[in-house]
Design a protein around this nucleic acid. Structure first.
Length: 282
DNA sequence: AACTGTCCCTGCAAGC
DNA sequence: TGCTTGCAGGGACAGT
């Protein structure tokens, strides 16, 4: 599933392949992918616009256009952004196609591909961002692009109750962590998913913040995690390799790589599968 | 205000 | 073999 490291990998691809180019034409194959503002607004907003920058906050990709408009792309569960030469066969579920201006004698298309159609593409005027994309204003700090530390995390957890894992998944607390990295972070800090916030010492919260930054950074360096089912790939269609470093996620029934003395257990927590080592994580 | 459960959607794997 | 069922999951939303 695309989480912060996967989205960051896509952002870097956009930076090298799309920033500086003009979108010459747009085709929308499925209305649902542009449901928020509609087909006409996306076509009108993108056509003829030059992409000036590719940014990211949490799992949200943001493209600044020379027209002053902003593009938001969210991959949700199964979205992909691909850049391929004109004429390359489009995969099933290619819902948005942008023809890019020539570079080094080559024309390319940027595709938004999304089998499960939870993802979306939004285009709006910069002045209207808060109105069209109110969730951006509610995001917690991004551990990579914003200042982030144990102090910041403690502040974000202040006033919140309950189990730590759902809070790590809450984008209002910290932006960018999803199910895979929540489980991996908790394992590194040796915390069970159900540990309550009020049971965590300052020292533990500091360690949690450090693990968040470290794991996300390591995952970015490896191009994110590509799982068997959703087949996340980067903008060139290449897989990530951080899945090889997972110590709990997707390892149910396998031996714990940390203690080597028991097997990884999995249970459903708030509708999400949760993997942990019952010996290492207390 | 902040928590929990439900829903959106498709592809795939497991089970009968 | 071919169907049905369950699972994967981010985030908006409704209900508490």
């Amino acid at each position: 599933m695309p989480e912060l490291p996967e989205v960051e990998t896509v952002r870097r691809g956009l930076e090298s392949h799309v920033v500086g180019r003009t979108i010459e034409s747009v085709h929308i194959g499925r209305e649902r992918s542009v449901r928020r503002v509609g087909r006409e607004a996306v076509i009108h907003g993108l056509t003829g616009a030059k992409v000036m920058a590719a940014r990211r906050r949490g799992k949200y990709l943001l493209l600044d256009l020379d027209t002053g408009d902003l593009v938001m792309i969210h991959l949700r569960m199964s979205g992909r952004v691909l850049v391929e030469p004109i004429g390359a066969p489009r995969p099933p579920h290619t819902h948005v196609v942008c023809r890019l201006s020539e570079r080094n004698g080559q024309h390319h298309e940027m595709w938004f591909v999304d089998p499960r159609t939870f993802g979306e593409v939004v285009v709006c005027e910069s002045d209207d961002v808060s109105q069209v994309l109110p969730e951006l204003d509610r995001l917690g700090p991004d551990p990579i692009v914003d200042d982030f530390s144990g102090e910041v995390l403690k502040d974000r957890l202040n006033g919140r109750r309950g189990a730590i894992k759902p809070l790590l998944l809450n984008q209002h607390v910290v932006a960018g962590i999803g199910n895979i990295y929540a489980d991996e972070v908790l394992h590194r800090v040796r915390l069970r998913w159900n540990r309550t916030v009020d049971s965590l010492s300052t020292k533990t919260i500091n360690a949690l913040a450090t693990a968040i930054t470290e794991i996300l950074t390591e995952a970015i360096e490896r191009g994110g995690s590509t799982l068997e089912d959703t087949q996340y790939v980067d903008i060139d269609g290449k897989s990530g390799s951080f899945q090889d470093m997972h110590r709990v996620y997707g390892r149910e029934g396998l031996g714990c790589l940390t203690c080597g003395k028991t097997t990884i257990r999995r249970e459903m927590v708030a509708g999400r599968s949760t993997s942990y080592c019952p010996r290492c994580q207390k």
